[in-house]
Structures are given as C-alpha cells and as structure tokens.
Nucleic acid binder design. Structure first.
Lengths: 352, 352
DNA sequence: ATGAAAGCGCTAACAA
DNA sequence: TTGTTAGCGCTTTCAT
C-alpha cells in the first residue's frame, strides 16, 4: 500500500539499518531480553536514545497482543473526589510503571458501562480498576473475567480483588458515639443496598443500633443513589421527622445534606448533631467543623494501583483478596449532647 | 510465528469469511464508506452485531495511522477539582464521540511532563488537552505542535486554542468590592506569574487597585505554586502583616488559606474579610459562607471537550481561538465592612 | 546470540 | 461496487 504516512519518526527498522543489525535484535535489546550480547544491547539502547526513538505503543501492544500499555479505569460519577481524585491519583501512580490509564465514566448506567467495558477490552487494556454501576449487567461481569480486575469502592460479587473503605466498623462507632451523647432519634441517610458499600454501611449502622441498645425504630433511614441532589432532597425529607442526629453514609450525600441543614437554619450541634462522610479537608472548614467518617482516598488509590500492577505481573492468579482501608471517625463540633429541651424546630434565635 | 494468541474473538476476517465477502468490504461497511451497496452494508453491520464483533482499537488506530481512538489529557495536579473533576467530566463528554481519554499527571514537573507527552504521542493520540506545567520545556512545546491541542486553565504561549477562566475582570471586581467596604490594607495570595493564570489574576488585581484608587503598596502580595500546603503557609505569613482583607487567586490555595484563617481563630468578616477562589459548593458550607470567585468547572470541561472534538474534525486548521469562561464574584458572609476599631490581632473573645 | 520472516487485526491503495 | 494485497510498527517463532 505504500507509506501511508510517515511523520519523520524513527522506528525499529531505522535503528536496525543504522546499526547494521536486524529489527529482531533491536527489539530484543530494547525490551531487555537476556538473549542479546550485553555490549550490543547497550549500543542499541544508546543509539535509540540518541535518535530519540520512542516505541509506537499501539504497534507494540498489538503485536504482543498483551502488554501493559493501557489499563482502564471505570467509575460511575465525576462529581466527587471519591472517584475523580482517586482516578487522577491512580493515573499518577500507574504512570510510574509506564502504564497509561484510560478513564471512562459510566454515569451509573449499566448499558453505557457495558459498552465502555467492551471498548476498553477492544483497546486491549492489560487490566481494569472498576467501580461497578449499581445494577451492573451480567454480561458486564462476564467481560470482567477476561482480564485482571480490581474492584474499587464497590464490589459486584465477581472473583476479583477489591479495595474498599471499611465502613461497617466506622458506621457502628458512629451510632455509638451519637447514642452516648444521648441521641435516641437518629436519622441515617445512605446509599442503596444494591450497592455493596451501601449494604456494608447499613450493616454497620444496624450493628451500632444493636450495640447501643437502641430500637431499630428509633432510626429513620433513607437510602438513595449517591448524588448531591439526592442528598439534599432526602435530608429535607428526613428532617421533617425531627431527628436529633443525622448521620450520612456517602460523600456526595454529605455535601447535599450539609447544604440542606444550613438551608433549614439548623444550628449544629444544638438543633442537630451531624456526622458527614468522606473527604475530611472540606468538612473541617465548616463551622462548626463537621464530625466526619474520614476516608483516605489517597490510601484507596495507592492500594488499588498497587494491587492492579501486582495482578498484571502474576501469571498464576493469586486468590482474590479484599483490602479494607479503615476510615476514621473524626470527632468535631457538629456532634454534641442531645438537647432535651428544644426539639429542633424553629431556627430559634441567637446562640448567645 | 503463528496464532500468537487468539481469545475466541471475531475479527474482520471471520466476518468476511462468514459473509462470503472480502475483509475490505467488511471494513468499508463498518466504517460507513459510501462505496458499499447500502443493502450489503446493512447486512454486514447486522452480522457483525450478531456475532458480537468489536473492532480492535489498537489495530484500527495503527493501520489508519491516525484516528480518534485516543486523546490525551495532561494535568499537573490531582488534588483539586479544577483538574480532577474537569478531567473526569471531559472523559465523560469525549466518550460520547467514541474517544477514549488517557489521563496523565505531570506533578508540575517539566521533565516528567515531557516524557509523558512523548508517550502519549507514542500512543498516537488524536489530540491533547493540556494544562502545561509551570516551567514547560521548549521541547515539550515542540511536541505539542505535532497534534491538535487545546490548552486548559493555563496557556504556554503556543499556537493552540485555549479554555480559561476569565479571571482578570473578576479579580478586579473583587478588589473594588473590598475597597468599597473600606478596606485599605488588602493581602493577595496568588499563583506565580510564570503561570499564565497567575499572571492574568495578578493583572486583574492591579487593575482593581488602580480603579479603586488604592496605592499599590496597600496590597501585600504572595505568589506561590498552587498547593493547599503552600496556601496554608503563605496565608500564615501574610496574616502577620495584619491585613483587613485577604483575597485568594487559586482553588487549592483557597482551601489552605481557609484552614489557616480558621487556625488563627479569626472571625469572618469581623477580623478579616476573605474572598476564596474556585468551586463554590464547598465554600458555601463554611460559616459564614465564603465570598467566592466562582469558576464553572462544568463549563470549562464542556468547552474544552467540544473544542478538541471540533479540532479533530477540521483538516484545515482554524485560528487558535481563546475561550474565556467568566467566573462570578459571589458575595457572601465572609466579606464585610472594614472594622476600623479592631485591627485584627488577638482572636478577641466572643461574637456576642 | 542473531537474523529472516510471519504475523497482530485492521485500513487503504490499486486493480478490476 | 468489490476484491486483492500491501502494509501500519512492532514482537516473536523458527532456524541458524
């Protein structure tokens, strides 16, 4: 067909010709094959360097039919650091390994997710880090068996290692904390149980209720898809029940909830004790600073990236381990003793 | 070499054989070439669909030697929504076009940036969206000429369209706002002028000073690389000068500054008027809510994605237009009249 | 230890 | 309108 296009770039053939050796040897030298005379290998590498050679990753990956040129990162949402910041951090870490990260957003849509997974596989990604959509298709799970996968934040019950925040313990602690402060009428705003992390957090809340000797009826619950919008609306609804404490199980929900609480003019912690969930650096800025189930996104990202890279190395699959990152219950000014006199209602005057 | 590996996937050859036609026709039909009998094309597409065919993107891009299979997204930092959320949003938008986005983080390191750009080009990206590092290498700029580029947030003076926040106007307004409140001793914390956006913001501040009839000496300035850490430290330093108002020119800087202000126990706006910069949803949660130069990251992402896609279509380069997204100066409770009596110093007792 | 050559899966000349 | 065939740039088998 002839030179389709050739931006004056150097390729292995050029190097081979210039060095008077074969392309095979060039390739071997550049890939650190032991079957090359070290001195020759050195010479090849130097020449490649001098000529500014950079291997075409497409050709390399296509030819090898498996390489770590690309990995895919699949997340449902963009508007929370739990996803976007973790994605960026993973990209940073993976690039140290020479691996490029393709980022795709499913918008929590199972069909879209399926298409994106297919396209990712069509790019011959070496592996995937995935936060599955809430109602992931079986077909998608099937696709996830064909390549090393690490599950992040959410599990979809496939045989693959995962990195999650260890929320059960933290949520239970949270309930105990509120109960110890005298709260009996608590509201919980979390994510649906169809979401693995929603289920885990709810389990924690239930365990806390039990341990605190509370009645399950004392806790009003609302489980919604994790968006700021939903968090805002659900909080307004929950507040109608006049709980004395509100705990949130989700980062986006927390932001929405905080706005709703402020909108209603509730004073923290006098009118309401509030426990947020997620990235601490923001909530600390609130006044009073919010008691927070603080998740280390940094640790999550690091673990996920390491896990995937390790996975890419092994030819023999190791068991699918689950890695739990313990969040911290950071006590701050938004939680306090239940105020027995004033069942929060009217924004009630000044603090002084 | 033989069948190197062949996970039972269908390829064009399979389709061609099964339909009794040539691979070329299959390819043409699948790519919507007009030179195929419509009825045949239809039959090919249906068969491909039925067989679950998904084109190998590597092979396709390698063969075509130019395609929109991949684009690169290059940013310096991960810890601010200005980068990570915008990256994720762009990935979302680009995927609608069937384009996969490779995300890389330069850590604001010119050498790393250069290596990453080379590797991105080695992946034959169709285009790039780039937030250049502070001291980008000339060699990197050179690389950026070989492919359609959109500059985001920061410009590095190359011939390429850009999408920026129109900060000059907003920063000037901001100074005027503070001056109108009676502030004469203002501090400005921004990013270095080596950064295009740092230069723009500073220009805005200067213009505001002029318009407000202030003296340049009235404004203490500190220009640092935009990290929360730096913002925190620089704010502590600036506060020693006892300004009555502090304005910030950067998102990460604002978070660091807010923490520093809180740490010092300053009451807003009594002890200090504070203007933050960046994503409004957080700063609104502060107490009092922070007056903010609110940037629409959504609009930035949309514009950048659209611009790049448009760029990929054109064969004839259109002029490198600059797109300015106007931020809004959102007045809130953190700015107020200068308190002439009390030159902020000791955290001074209770508000009541 | 090295070279020759056959592909990886696709697209695009060129011919018919 | 369709088929034949030569690559895209690299890796890897097989032979030496």
């Amino acid at each position: 067909m002839g030179a389709r296009t050739r931006r004056g770039e150097v390729g292995v053939v050029d190097l081979a010709r210039e060095l008077g050796i074969s392309t095979a040897t060039v390739s071997r030298a550049l890939n650190g094959s032991s079957a090359v005379r070290p001195e020759l290998a050195q010479r090849v590498r130097e020449h490649a360097e001098a000529r500014g050679y950079v291997a075409n990753r497409l050709a390399r990956a296509l030819s090898a039919n498996t390489s770590r040129a690309f990995v895919g990162f699949v997340i449902p949402y963009v508007d929370t650091p739990a996803y976007s910041a973790v994605a960026a951090e993973c990209a940073r870490l993976l690039s140290r390994d020479g691996t490029q990260m393709i980022l795709t957003i499913t918008e929590n849509d199972p069909e879209l997710e399926h298409r994106q997974l297919r396209e990712l596989l069509a790019s011959r990604v070496a592996g995937l880090i995935v936060s599955p959509s809430t109602h992931i298709l079986d077909a998608s799970k099937q696709l996830l068996t064909s390549v090393p996968v690490v599950q992040l934040h959410r599990s979809c019950g496939i045989e693959a290692p995962g990195v999650f925040s260890d929320d059960e313990q933290a949520m239970a602690e949270c309930v105990l904390h509120l109960a110890a402060l005298g709260h009996r009428h608590i509201a919980y705003l979390g994510t649906p149980v169809a979401l693995s992390n929603g289920a885990v957090r709810l389990r924690g809340v239930r365990r806390g209720i039990e341990l605190a000797g509370l009645n399950e009826d004392d806790v009003t619950m609302s489980l919604v898809e994790p968006t700021q919008q939903n968090g805002h609306q659900a909080t307004l609804d929950l507040l109608r029940e006049k709980p004395t404490a509100l705990m949130i199980g989700g980062g986006s929900l927390s932001v929405g909830a905080a706005h709703a609480v402020r909108e209603r003019g509730l004073r923290l912690p006098d009118d309401l004790s509030l426990v947020a969930y997620g990235d601490p650096s923001w909530f600390a800025l609130s006044e009073p600073p919010l008691t927070t189930v603080a998740v280390s996104y940094q640790a999550l990202a690091e673990t996920a990236a390491e896990l995937l890279l390790a996975r890419l190395d092994e030819r023999h699959r190791s068991p699918a381990t689950t890695h739990l990152i313990p969040p911290q219950l950071r006590l701050a000014g938004s939680t306090g003793p239940r105020n027995p006199g004033e069942h929060n209602g009217v924004p009630g005057g000044n603090a002084c």
